[in-house]
Computed example of a mutant assay.
Amino acid sequence: MLNRLLRPAALLASAGAITVLATACGGGSPAASGDAPAYPALASSATCSQLRTQNPDLAGKTLTNAINPHTPGYESISVSDPTKYEGFDIDLGEAIGECLGFKVNYLPVAFDALLPTLQSGQADFIISDIYATEERAASADFITYSKVNDGVLVAAGNPKQLTGIDDSLCGTTTALNKGFVEVPLVEAQSAKCLAAGRPPAQTALFDNNADCVQAILSGRADSYINDVNTVARFVKDQPDKLARATAVTLPYSIGIAVPQGQLPIRNAFTAALTEIQNSGLQTQLSQKWALDESAIEAPSLITAS
């Protein structure tokens, strides 16, 4: 599903209620009220019908998803229509909205601003290929839906012969998004390099994936580490210039972030996500967006408590 690229103009809040956002452009939410659902079988399922009845504070509202729209396959600006977003995470959020009865609006921010945006109340949830870690759970509650498998993107031919987050990174520069979980992993490897009398493993930090990849293409970085499907997509787009060196298994899951302690929205999203998985829709969306190495995980919670 493609969605209009809209920014919220005002935050409407009431005590004990889930925040909803109005849009700056006349016409309201990305999908006009009354539009036929993109996933009619899901929307009309007994489970989703019951969830809408149980969650009247969500039905008919517009919620904002904070995204970093620079990850092709997950969330990015449509090449064919730059006024729209597209990708697995966009479709997943829309499917949850259809199950629970709300529309989705989008707020694009830098990756390291995702959680602060949610905490400030400018967004109601985050579905943006964000890894659910205990450290991040200090800022939000997470509902997991997929296992993490990273890939290492390098220049074609892998000139530095990189083999993962290991000694091969000594003396090289890794491009990473600010706030990525891989940043401290590379920094820890750098300490090991120095302890062994070798040059450090350096990082170059950027606001989005596209800038990380450009750093490799321009020779300012030797590698970039991220979700393996994201890496594969960049290689597919420029096979003469880029390659995947290896895959790295990390002990994390990808999750949906919701405000801490707001049990109604957390429970509703968990139930809707469970129905989406049970219906086979998450698998269909993964196939649609060529996320060939996705590993669906039954929803579980990662919270600070």
Rank of each mutant, 00 (worst) to 15 (best):
L114K: 07
D112M: 06
G151Q: 06
I130H: 11
A140R: 01
F111H: 09
F111S: 06
S120Q: 14
Y145D: 08
L115T: 10
N149Y: 00
I127C: 01
A137I: 03
D124V: 03
N149P: 00
S128C: 08
T144F: 15
F142T: 08
Y145T: 08
E134G: 07
I127A: 01
A110G: 13
S120L: 09
S139W: 07
D141G: 07
L153N: 02
V152A: 12
I143D: 11
D124K: 00
Q119F: 02
F142H: 10
N149T: 01
L118V: 07
D112H: 14
G151P: 04
K147D: 10
Q122H: 14
L114P: 05
T144W: 15
A132Y: 12
R136V: 04
F111R: 04
K147C: 00
A132Q: 11
D150T: 00
T133D: 10
A113H: 15
A123Y: 01
I130R: 12
Q122S: 15
T133A: 11
I127H: 02
V154P: 09
D150W: 00
K147Y: 03
A132G: 12
L153Y: 03
V154T: 14
A138Q: 12
S139R: 14
V148R: 13
L115P: 03
V152R: 12
I143V: 14
Q119A: 11
N149E: 01
Y145K: 07
V148F: 12
K147V: 01
V152M: 15
L118A: 05
E135A: 08
A110I: 08
R136C: 04
A140P: 01
L153V: 04
R136D: 00
A113Y: 13
Q122E: 15
S128A: 13
A110Q: 15
L118C: 07
N149I: 00
Q122M: 13
L118Y: 06
Y145W: 12
A132H: 11
Y145S: 08
D150R: 00
Q122I: 04
A110L: 12
D124W: 02
D124L: 03
D112Q: 14
S146D: 14
A113T: 10
E135D: 10
L114D: 05
A123D: 05
D141T: 08
I130Y: 09
D141F: 05
Q122N: 15
S120C: 07
G121W: 01
S146V: 03
L115R: 10
A138S: 06
I130C: 06
D129R: 09
D129P: 01
Y145V: 08
Q122K: 15
G121L: 02
Q119H: 05
Y131N: 11
T133Y: 13
D150Y: 03
A110T: 13
D124N: 10
T117S: 13
T133I: 11
T133N: 12
Q119N: 12
A113G: 10
T144N: 15
S146Y: 03
G151Y: 05
L115N: 10
Y131L: 09
D150L: 02
G121A: 00
I126N: 09
I130Q: 12
A110R: 11
V152N: 13
G121K: 00
S139Q: 15
A123M: 04
P116G: 14
A138I: 02
A138L: 08
I130P: 01
A110Y: 13
E135N: 07
G121T: 02
L115Q: 10
V152Q: 14
Y131P: 02
D150P: 00
L115D: 06
Y145E: 11
D150I: 00
D141R: 03
S146T: 09
L118S: 05
P116M: 10
S120E: 14
Q119M: 06
T144Q: 15
